[in-house]
Every structure is written in structure tokens, then in C-alpha cells.
Write a protein that binds this DNA or RNA. Structure first.
Length: 334
DNA sequence: GATGCGTGGAC
DNA sequence: TGTCCAAGCAT
């Protein structure tokens, strides 16, 4: 059974190695800045540190305070988010920033943070622990895996993880403890080929004692990924391209896009396809045929075609636009 | 509890 | 190439 001694070894290991997220401190300090912690935690939902770091830095450079973010237009924030995925996060981020700015500051407890849009069990606990030192444990994939191995639990619920791990939280270091566990999960207690020989918790770890750390937690059953089909229209007028905004809900909700009909399970007829983009989403893959059109469709706007990277297009449509522009005959014919 | 929701890197 | 995986949330 892990003891306070185990927590001490974990903390010493963490503080003795390079911490992964130094950019969350307020400028010129070591203290985590609540705005930066909240923004980064939302970005980090199901997204790697490598992906988030440069995007976070751009957000902070453009909107240094939450008041700046709250005052920004929906369009500018969605555009800055383009390419990061899970776009409901961006829509919730906008609503959340305005709510926080209206009330004056971030709530400083997990219970109050949990009421904000886009802030769930994990994020509320992460911000409360890291930014405000509340003695709570955010349970993410890393911490769930570390706890599962430490206690040899095959399919622990988040509640079970909290029950066994919360007693180990150091009184004055809740934020560092959570980050230490997440760091451990990311670098040592990895899903495959964990580096148990370097792990400060190995002496306490039941799965290690059993000689089978990779059996915990048990992997989830995988689902089949269906294939779908779509058409998008490439509409040029001089140096400009016709873009539209997708509906607020559903896939790529609220994002800029090339116009086109709803995607379907089977291919549907259209004129000659001059490019085909294959794109893989979480729950299906898509073949998107690009077809030239002469007249704009839907409620949209003309965007300079030589500045396509600034259009705020999600990756699917950015890939499509780049394919079109790389096909000179197609582009000229449009 | 199950499902929908992006993207890119590792292997 | 395909598969797995990632500091989850809303419904």
C-alpha cells in the first residue's frame, strides 16, 4: 500500500526533472496564472502537449488577459482555434471567457469552476489544484493508468481513482502532485513498455510486483470506423474563394468551410471530381470530392485565395483548398 | 453508460 | 499502410 513516503518520492522525482508546462506561470514568476492554467487545460483536453504549446503561446500573445479574450469576436477565436480539433471546446471557451470576465475573475474552487461551460470533472479539479492549491485530484488518462497499475485495478472508475489517490495528495502541493502524476504517466508509466526501472513508485506498485504492468488498466474494446462520402464546391471569383460557416452543432460546428451538401454513407453523383481528399475523423473516415462551381452557394463570404492559411479553416478544408491550389489546371478552370 | 466530437504523432 | 493514443466534455 503506497504511503506518504511514496508521494514524497514522486514529488522529488518530478521536481528534479524538467517540468513539462513552465509556460503556465505568470510572466516573471513561478506562480501558475489562473487564466493560463484554465486556457491550457481546455486546450489540453484530448490533445498532446506538443500540439498545444505553440497554439497556447499564440493565444496568449494575441489575448494576454481573459478580459482581452472575452472582448474578442467569435470569428477571431474560432479562426485561431482552427486545426486544434474538438471545436465545441472553442465555442465553450468563448462563452466561458465572457462569463468569467463578467463575474470579474475565475472561481477558485473546483465546485464553482465545474459550473462553467466546457469545464468538466477533470478541468475543474486541474484548475483548482494547479492555480489555487485546492486539495483535489484531476483524473485524466495518465492518472487513471498510474492508479490502475499502482493498485492493480483493471477498470477503475474515476471515483475509485480519487478514493485511492486523494489521501496521497501533499497538503500544500496539490497542483504539483497532479502534474507529477501526469508527467509520470506520460514519460515512465506509459501505456506500452513502461519504464518501471526508473519509476519512483515501483516499490509501491502492485502491477509491477505482479510483473505485468501492461495488463492494467485493461484496454477498451475498439469500434469499427465507417467510411463516408462528401462533396465540396470550389467557387472562384477572381482572386477570391467562396467560404461558408458550418452550423453551430455537429462536426466542425461553427467553423469556416467550403460549401457542400451533407455527407452521406454512399457516394452520390456529381460533376467531374478534380480532387479527392481522404480525411480520418474519430468516428468515421471521409472521402471529400472537390468540384468546381460557378456561383456561390449559401450564406458566406469571399476570401483572398492567396491567403488561405488565415481563413480559419479546419484541417479537412485546409487540405482540400491546398489540393485545389496545387492543381493548376483545376484552379485555372474554376 | 454510450455516443459524438479532430488531429497528428508513434509504431 | 492501419491502429492506438492523447492533461475530456456534453448530451
Amino acid at each position: 500500500m503506497p504511503s506518504a513516503n511514496a508521494a514524497n518520492r514522486l514529488m522529488k522525482h518530478y521536481l528534479g526533472t524538467a517540468r513539462t508546462l513552465p509556460w503556465r506561470a505568470a510572466p516573471g514568476t513561478n506562480a501558475p496564472d489562473p487564466y493560463r492554467v484554465w486556457l491550457s487545460e481546455v486546450m489540453l483536453q484530448q490533445t498532446t502537449v506538443t500540439t498545444v504549446t505553440p497554439r497556447f503561446n499564440r493565444f496568449i500573445e494575441r489575448w494576454p488577459t481573459i478580459e482581452d479574450l472575452a472582448a474578442a469576436s467569435d470569428k477571431s477565436i474560432l479562426s485561431e482555434w482552427a486545426g486544434l480539433g474538438y471545436y465545441a471546446r472553442a465555442r465553450n471557451l468563448i462563452a466561458c471567457a465572457r462569463e468569467i470576465a463578467a463575474r470579474g475573475s475565475l472561481p477558485n474552487t473546483a465546485e464553482e469552476l465545474r459550473k462553467l461551460p466546457g469545464v468538466g470533472e477533470y478541468t475543474s479539479a486541474a484548475v483548482a489544484a494547479i492555480a489555487f492549491g485546492e486539495r483535489v485530484l484531476p483524473v485524466d488518462t495518465n492518472i487513471r493508468r498510474v492508479a490502475a497499475r499502482l493498485f492493480a485495478m483493471e477498470q477503475p472508475t474515476d471515483s475509485q481513482v480519487r478514493d485511492v489517490m486523494t489521501p496521497l495528495i501533499p497538503t500544500d502541493r496539490a497542483g504539483d502532485f497532479a502534474q507529477a502524476l501526469m508527467d509520470l504517466g506520460a514519460t515512465i508509466c506509459r501505456p506500452a513498455k513502461p519504464l518501471c526501472s526508473r519509476c519512483p513508485l515501483a516499490p509501491d506498485c502492485t502491477a509491477f510486483a505482479l510483473g505485468q504492468p501492461e495488463l492494467f488498466p485493461r484496454p477498451k474494446a475498439r469500434k469499427h470506423r465507417p467510411h463516408r462520402h462528401g462533396t465540396a464546391w470550389w467557387t472562384r471569383r477572381g482572386d477570391h474563394l467562396w467560404l461558408v460557416r458550418r452550423p453551430d452543432h455537429g462536426i466542425l460546428g461553427g467553423m469556416a468551410a467550403l460549401p457542400g451538401p451533407d455527407w452521406t454513407d454512399t457516394p452520390h453523383p456529381h460533376g467531374p471530381a478534380l480532387a479527392r481528399i481522404r480525411h480520418v475523423f474519430t468516428h468515421f473516415s471521409l472521402d471529400l470530392d472537390l468540384v468546381s462551381a460557378s456561383e456561390p452557394v449559401g450564406d458566406g463570404w469571399w476570401h483572398p485565395v492567396d491567403d488561405i492559411d488565415s481563413a480559419g479553416l479546419p484541417t479537412l478544408y485546409l487540405k482540400a483548398a491546398r489540393a485545389a491550389l496545387a492543381t493548376p489546371l483545376f484552379d485555372a478552370a474554376a
